[in-house]
Design a binder for these strands. Sequence first.
DNA 1: TTGTAAGCGTTATCAG
DNA 2: CTGATAACGCTTACAA
Lengths: 325, 325
Amino acid sequence: MANIKEIARLAGVSVSTVSRVLNDHPYVSAEKRARVLETVEQLKYARNMNAVHLITGKTRSIAIMLPYINHAYFSRLTEGIGGEALANHYRLVLYQTAYKTSMEREVLEMLRNREVDGIIILSMSTPVAVIEEYCRYGPILCCQDAGERAFSSIYIDHARAFRAGMDCLINKGHRHFGFTVGRMDSPSTKSRLEAYKKVLKELNEPFREEWIMDGCLDIEDGASIMQRFQNMPERPTAMMVTGDQVAAGLLWEAGKRGVSVPGQLAIIGFDNQPVSKLLGLTTIDNRLFEMGAEAFRILYRQIREPDSGPVRKELAFRLIERSSV
Amino acid sequence: MANIKEIARLAGVSVSTVSRVLNDHPYVSAEKRARVLETVEQLKYARNMNAVHLITGKTRSIAIMLPYINHAYFSRLTEGIGGEALANHYRLVLYQTAYKTSMEREVLEMLRNREVDGIIILSMSTPVAVIEEYCRYGPILCCQDAGERAFSSIYIDHARAFRAGMDCLINKGHRHFGFTVGRMDSPSTKSRLEAYKKVLKELNEPFREEWIMDGCLDIEDGASIMQRFQNMPERPTAMMVTGDQVAAGLLWEAGKRGVSVPGQLAIIGFDNQPVSKLLGLTTIDNRLFEMGAEAFRILYRQIREPDSGPVRKELAFRLIERSSV
DNA sequence: TTGTAAGCGTTATCAG
DNA sequence: CTGATAACGCTTACAA
C-alpha cells in the first residue's frame, strides 16, 4: 500500500513537502501542493495513523472506564462524552470492567502504554491512591467526587441532592423513608448514607438497616423491592431510588399490587431519564449528559496543556417534581 | 521514559532478547529472561503500543459503527461484542454516527488508516456498495442482513419474526394491526413491511398507511402512539412494536388512558429487554447479546485469517408469549 | 540461544 | 519555500 515516500517520488517532491500538504502546513507553493494532492488522489493514499501516533506521541483517543455498557446511567454519560469527543476528532475506547480491579488496571495501563491520551472514569472500585499513581502518564478524570486529588473530577453533590429529595418528602409529611443503592461501597452511596443518617437524627427516627436496599441496578431490581417490603414489620412510606430504571420497576410493581403512589408510597428517582417523565416520576436530575460533555472538555484541555493542574468541578443538580411524591 | 533499548543496555542483553522476553517467545535462557524481567520491573518499563501497532500492522481494536450510544438495542448489542472482545484482548472504539453518512464514512476511513483491525456495523444509512469498497482494507461485519456481500453479516430473519408475531395475533382473532418502526428506510423495516403486506393480502384487509408509525425509538415515542390513535377513524386492535422500550411506553400510556391490554389493544414488542419481562410484554427475542458476541467471533476469525471469505449467519429468534396479547 | 541491523511510515529539525 | 536526515520504539529476518 502506498506510503508517503511513494507519493513524494511520483509527485517529484520530498517527503517533507508531502507531509506538509497532508497536515495543512503553510509554506508550500500552490503548484506543489496541487501536484501532491493529485498524486494522493490517484494512488488512493491513506495515512497510516499508527506511524503518526508513534512519532507525535498522541493517539487522539481516550479510554472510558465503566462497569456496565448496557446501563442507562453509563450510556447517557458516555453519550455526552461521545458527542464532544467526536466534535474534536477524538475517539472513545470503551472498557467494561464489571468493577473488577484487574480490568480497571488494564484501562490504566492503556494510558501508560500510550494507547490513549487520557482516561475518563465513570465508576470504579480501585482505590484512589492507585489511580493517582497513573496520573504521571496522562490526564485522568473521574465522574465522581474524590476530593482533592492528582486527577480531575466532575460531580454533583450527592449528599445535598439526597438531602433535597428528603426535604421534599419531609415537606409532604413523610418521616419513614428508605433508599436503594447500586453498590454499598461506592462514594456516592457513602455520601447519601451520611445525609440519610443526619436527617434521621434530626427527625429523631431510628436507623433501620433493612430500609437500605443494596444491589439495585435495573428495572427488575426495582420491582423486587415490593417483595422485600412484605417481610418487614414496618415499611417506609417513601423511597429514594438511585436510578429511574429502578424507580420505574418499583412504581410498576406497586401499581400491580394495588399500592397507590404517592398515597401509600412516595417515590423519588434519580437521573431524569426519559422513563421518569413518562411515568410522572419525581426525580433528581444529575445532568449526566452535560457532565459527560464537560468531562471531555476538561480532559481535552489537560491533554493539550499537560502542565495545567487537575480540575474539580461541581455541577448543579435539579429536583424535578412530578406526581410520585 | 524508558524504552526497550535502555532495558537491553541495563540488563546487558540485546534488544531482540528483550523483545523476546516481552512477547513470551521461546529460546531465551532462564537467566537472561530473569535479568530482563528484573530490569523491566526496576525501570517500570511500559511498552509503547503505538510502535507495536506500526510494526505489526495490527491494533487489536475494532470500531463499532452505531447511530446512538444511549439506546437499549445498541447498548445490548455492544455489551455482547464487548464481552467477547475483552476476552480476546481487543478494544472497542465506539463511533456514534446519528445515521449521518459523513460520520459513517469516518468509521470506514479508520479501517483504511489502520486505526482499527475491523469494523462491526450495528446500523447504518450508507449504501452497501460503499461498504464493500472498504472491504479490501480489512474485515467488516454488519449486524443486519445485507444479502450476499463482500462483508460478513449476522442477523435474524426479520420478515419471519414479524410473521411469527402476526400469526400469534391472528390466532387470537386480530385482523387489524399496525406497527411501529425506527426508520422507514432501514432494511429490517423493509422486510417487515413486506411481511405485513403479505399478511394483509391473505386476510383480505386493506393497507392503511397511518397504521405504520415512523420514528419510534424510545419510550416517549411509544406513549405518543396513543395520541396518534385519537385522530384515526378506525384503529388497529393490535400493535407490533419494534423495541420493548417503545412498547413499554405504549403499554403505560394505554393503561393511563383506560385502554385495556390485551383486551382493547394487543401489543408485541421486540428485543426481550428486561422491561418487557417486568411488564408482562409479549416480545420477540432477537438475541442481541448472542448476536454481538458471535459478531465479534466471526470478525476475529477474519482478522486472523484474512483470506477466509465473508460469513453470513442467521440467528434464530424466539417469540416469548406473555400477557400483552 | 543470542545479537546485529533492517525496517514500519510518519513528523521534526535544521540547513539551505 | 524546500529537502535531507534524524528520530519515534518496536519486531523480525538473518547471521552467528
